[in-house]
Design a protein around this nucleic acid. Structure first.
Lengths: 346, 346
DNA sequence: CTGTTAGCGCATTCAC
DNA sequence: GTGAATGCGCTAACAG
């Protein structure tokens, strides 16, 4: 049986109110009593019940964080950033994994509300879920990350997916490719949709035709990436380069390339969204866009804290730029291209 | 302001006790009242406060999970398994990241105790931390995963690291290698120590000499793996094969190999602990041991539930076998066997 | 079967 | 400055 505030009060010869005051750093307590209380707390090894405290003050110091896929390195990087920032502000993080499942997401959202968390940060599984509305109705501070929520207005921190995708595909085009495949996450999520849009933008800007056969979308996971890439490779006229929209898809695609007996990057070029910042350690020939995971997480917490202070400020939407890394080794040549050499520069 | 149980009671024309009974599925409530209550709950969109409930019953239905590195794919895989199993048993998971930091670990452990979680699953950062003792003192069900805790007896689910490491290194020896480097996690953790032991075992069993220069240990992370591997490659007489003890170390090592201008696996062979089950998609030439992440997580939860039911049962320690994958492409030959040194100048 | 009541551990009035 | 008293929302005795 854990020690209660009453035990401490008795041990220190004061009232529970005084103990409470000391522990929450309130002023107006004489130094003598403060010392006595602290001593008692120490010898009794007292740890206040956060449950009781939360019930009393109707608000905990916990930030609920719901990510759509804990196995996606992009999100673990963001989680790290969020934890760091929350910790610096005396908040703890209650992390849950919705696993791209709207049902689980709703369940966890309800759980957070029932736990009276101080605020919620969420990477939404779908664009709209009735549960999001409850957040607003109950006036729980919330911010969406990475993906846009469409059915209710809440603060969000996003990445410029369109711009980054366009840069990536443009790079491939400038290397001389004209048949460029796309292996993307489902357009049902704003990220998938935006990256597809960037791909299309780049093709249009260079007057290249869009071939629906070259565009594949699905769940952003290894297995699906593998399947989609295999389909592309089995096409009568497969692409000479591929744009992948996510690190897990990239891994699946690489596997498909290998198991087809093809070699990367000699037989097929690739440019990818790399949500882990180490993909290129293993495949230096990849052209990747590194995502601003740390800023994303930090800003999410900061936005949340701001909203906790001023519940009525206007909704804010931050869009971060993603930085494309062109590596030496990514200046490959078009394999089997009409003739020799489409290499742009040295 | 969220609706309270009293509101529901009034709306349904019953007492709060009846509402409570209906909601917790207790028997002895007439069908008529049950319907009325359910109706009220529905129209009022009532969600019971878990905070108040936890305070009352002195126990939540949350399992606290503290992992030592959320960015390590091994742990995210285990987290998935734990969540699945917990969810099937009507528990939610409160996940925290100690980030290999004993201070943070202690903080989170205290937090879980203060939150009155139903139980704690932890991958310990260090072998001993006074905070572990508190778990036992307060009789909070707990189980350690992946690493052994030495200063207090608690249930644990471990992997047969010695056996797996021995198999991996033996494989390299059987391929003809005799100068085998080791890039391992710190022996301060039981995993690091055991994998080192397996390495030594294999060498001894084949009568090979142990060269301290070929053994490097450090934090199990990319940066450290890179540094250690570089040191090995800069040795006057570098190894012809390397055994790495962790997926992140492996990535770092691969990077060092690449940036030295060497090629894998032509210039140097490698066998690795691969905590992600997709490392070999990217590097099929690796020989890896796949870790039983799902079983590990599932068993951890099951052990926890058992201890919740019978607090006084004897401590249990489960050791899982890890399975080694020998792939076609890993049957390489010793590069330039007893011939020239393949070191390149950097 | 159902309602009334008494806390769970703490923070916060309001008196002193 | 300090203590006594009240209630946060809920469940579990205990009556009826």
């Amino acid at each position: 049986m854990p020690t209660k505030i009453e035990d401490v009060a008795r041990r220190a010869g004061v009232s529970t109110a005084t103990v409470s005051r000391v522990l929450s750093g309130k002023p107006y307590v004489s130094d003598e009593l403060r010392q006595r209380v602290l001593g008692a707390v120490n010898t009794l090894n007292y740890r206040p019940s956060r449950v009781a405290r939360s019930l009393r003050v109707q608000r905990s110091s916990i930030i609920g964080l719901i990510v759509s896929d804990i196995q996606n390195p992009f999100f673990t990087a963001v989680v790290r950033a969020i934890e760091d920032t929350a910790y610096q502000n005396k908040f703890s993080v209650f992390l849950c994994n919705s696993d791209e499942d709207v049902g689980k997401e709703t369940m966890y959202l309800d759980l957070m509300l029932a736990e009276h968390v101080a605020g919620v940060i969420i990477s939404p599984t779908a664009g709209m879920n009735d549960a999001y509305r409850r957040l607003v109705e109950e006036r729980v501070p919330a911010v969406a990350i990475d993906r846009r929520i469409t059915n209710v207005a809440i603060d969000s921190v996003l990445v410029d997916n369109v711009g980054a995708a366009r840069q990536l595909v443009t790079h491939l085009i400038e290397q001389g490719h004209s048949r460029i495949g796309a292996v993307l996450g489902t357009p049902a999520s704003s990220t998938g949709e935006e990256r597809l849009r960037g791909y299309l933008d780049a093709l249009h800007a260079h007057g290249l035709p869009v071939e629906q056969d070259l565009i594949r979308t699905g769940m952003p996971r290894i297995l699906e990436g593998h399947a989609m890439m295999r389909e592309l490779l089995q096409l009568p006229k497969p692409p000479t380069a591929v744009f992948t929209g996510n690190a897990l898809l990239t891994i699946g695609a690489l596997r498909a390339i290998h198991s087809s007996g093809l070699r990367f990057p000699d037989d097929i070029a690739m440019a990818a969204f790399d949500e882990m910042d180490w993909m290129f350690f293993v495949k230096p020939a990849l052209t990747v866009v590194a995502q601003p995971t740390y800023d994303l997480g930090r800003l999410a917490v900061e936005l949340l804290l701001k909203r906790m202070d001023e519940p009525d400020r206007p909704i804010e939407e931050v869009v971060l730029a993603a930085h494309v890394h062109y590596r030496e080794s990514s200046k490959w040549r078009v394999p089997n291209a009409n003739g020799a050499n489409h290499q742009k520069e040295g």
